[in-house]
């Protein structure tokens, strides 16, 4: 199996939110496991042609979800449409969540706002350090999940974004 083919499988998995994929043909077995953070995929190939354990593990970095790809038929049992395109911006630290740079300023983002990786979406204050947080993804804000001035824990979803 070619690297190109594996890569397109990983991309399809990423696009459709699948985390595991297994395939067997002509004495070649391939298993792909993807982390939930979309950052990398672990590919294990078990080839019958090699002696010994014949196991290879490769980590393929995955870029942002690929927008359009041919052969959607390859995706079995697609999850509900909302889950496919919906992602969350999570808190990278513990602190107080602020939607605007100061109480008198307008919020960084509102529902409906188009964001890119570089868009600042909020501030998390921790020990009087004002941490500006970027969206880290492209999409449209569909929901603000935390109230202004409330605490956030590490990894807590703050915004829902439609890709």
């Amino acid at each position: 199996m070619e690297f190109k083919e594996i890569k397109s499988i990983v991309e399809l998995m990423t696009k459709n939110g699948l985390t595991e994929f297994e395939f067997e043909k002509d004495n070649v077995k391939i298993r792909i496991k993807r982390g939930s953070d979309d950052s990398a995929a672990v590919v294990t190939t078990l080839s019958g042609e090699t002696n010994g354990n014949g196991t290879h593990q490769v980590v393929i970095p995955v870029a942002a979800p690929v927008p359009q790809l041919a052969a959607p038929a390859a995706a079995p049992a697609a999850p509900a449409p909302e889950a496919i395109n919906s992602k969350e911006i999570k808190a990278p630290m513990v602190g107080t969540f602020y939607r605007a740079p100061s109480p008198d300023s307008p919020p960084y983002v509102e529902v409906g706002k188009v964001v890119t990786e570089e868009t600042v979406v909020c501030i998390i204050e921790a020990m009087k350090v004002m941490n500006e947080i970027k969206a880290e993804m492209k999409g449209v804000i569909t929901e603000v999940l935390i109230e202004n001035g409330k605490p956030v824990e590490f990894g807590k979803p703050m915004f829902r974004v439609k890709a």
Partner: peptide, 12 residues
Amino acid sequence: GILVETQWIANG
């Protein structure tokens, strides 16, 4: 007074 402001990059 001390005011620290930071910016985080996409990979965290």
